[in-house]
Design a protein around this nucleic acid. Sequence first.
RNA 1: GCCCUGAUAGUGUAGUGGUCUAUCAUGAAGCGUUGUCGAUGCUUCGACGCGGAUUCGAAUUCCGCUCGGGGCGCCA
Length: 473
Amino acid sequence: MTGRDGSTWQPTAYRTHTLGEIAGNGADLVDTDVTVAGYAEAVRGRGAICFLMLRDGTGHLQAFLKKDSMDEDTFTEIQSANRESIIQVTGTVAQKRPSKVKEGEPTPPPEYEIQVSGATILAMAEAPMPMGVTDKVHVKLPTRLDNRHIDLRRSHINAMFQIRSKVLQYGREHLITEGFNEMNSPKIIASASEGGTNLFPIKYFETDAYLSQSPQLYKQLAILGGLERVFEVGPAFRAEEHDTYRHLNEFISFDIEMAFANDDDVMAVQERMIQHIWKSVAENDQNLIDMINEWRAEQEPPLSPVTVEVPTLPFPRVEYSEAIEIIQNAGVNIEWGADIEAQHADMIAAKYPGFYFLPRWPMAMKPFYIYHNADEKGPNGGQLSRGFDLNYGRDEMTSGGQREHRVDVLIQNLENMGLDPADFTFYTDGFRFGAPPHAGWGLGVARLLMVLTGAGNVREVVLFPRDRSRVTP
RNA sequence: GCCCUGAUAGUGUAGUGGUCUAUCAUGAAGCGUUGUCGAUGCUUCGACGCGGAUUCGAAUUCCGCUCGGGGCGCCA
């Protein structure tokens, strides 16, 4: 199978049935005349018979060709077709002859095939392929990304992207049930909407503009406008020259913003959403996970299977100050106020496997727009913020927090951080006419998918990744 | 920005100065056998990134170039 059942797919000009439909429902279709089309995964048989293994988006099916029961030229043409050619066949559904079974072993369930009366090559594939689809040779990631349209024909890769679609669907589903509206913010912006990272400059007619690095400000403006609860799934662009398994220069961020809510409230939204995603995948998409695990088992050495363990709520809350203690107790010389690096996160993950929140970061480490209560201090008297991260193991999935809605505090924060409030009027002006308390977060979709699919690199779960050295395909 | 590392058939690899006329797998071409099924047997095809240096001799050592891979920081 390739994951989709195709049972709701209507016939098209090129096929009456999908392959998955016939493979899965063959008993009811025996003796039916059908037309199907797909990729020639294997063409076997050099003599008077020929086995054509076809693959489409719903599954695999064998087509059986006999020289004396069809046009001879057509037979020869199909028999000599290159692998991965697109072939349409017409014929009759029949039960496949059972394969030889050793004595004592159970008889496998009946399988079905098409006995071919006519066939057409819709598009011949060239040979050799830049990389094999079914070959058991390892192919390196760069080669695969250069030939992503072929890589995607491999069932476990195809499964990963079907899962990706499901994850986005389930995430949306959940937020909508909690009253969130989907929004879209501009990706062409005039200035930084969030401090920190470098932006990609672009030319916007006669003015300079940038690619958006975050929907942050626009989500907030939507909240100020009374949309109450919004989410956005969209690209973010960051001109950072990083080169790691978890960074890309263009990535899809799953963002929410919520009015009359604090950091604790939006953490709760997030863990409910993640639980819903995991639960839904476990209930509906185990077949896709199985396809990934089939591939993992074939590797040398075999990779352990990925499992979808629905996380229990609430996720652990490891406050920043506690996290620092954990790291110190692991023997690392780290001060309160220092950043928690990936290697440090390993130490926290040892105590809290799976998802865990890291709330209450020092205000000095968070952007000016993060909210703080003046009376919340760390052990050394350092000001705490209402900013948080969500980690899975060593990897940061989310960054979020309650936002500062008090315009006077906002301006004070800028001054405290040595920034000139005059440079941030594009931000602060929005807050001058009444701003409800609000909070939100941004979640890296690919990072979440890494966890779910067992991928070791975000590039695996992004169709056409953009990194420091890759802009094509 | 810092650090590490690499370039051998379409793909993935072996190879650390001399039977390398380059290994194995996969692939491709051809001929058989076969209601096959990770099909299979035989034959054939296909590669040392570019330039220079050392040497009797370089895939192998050195230098330059080009292109690539990975990690850190930062972040999602």
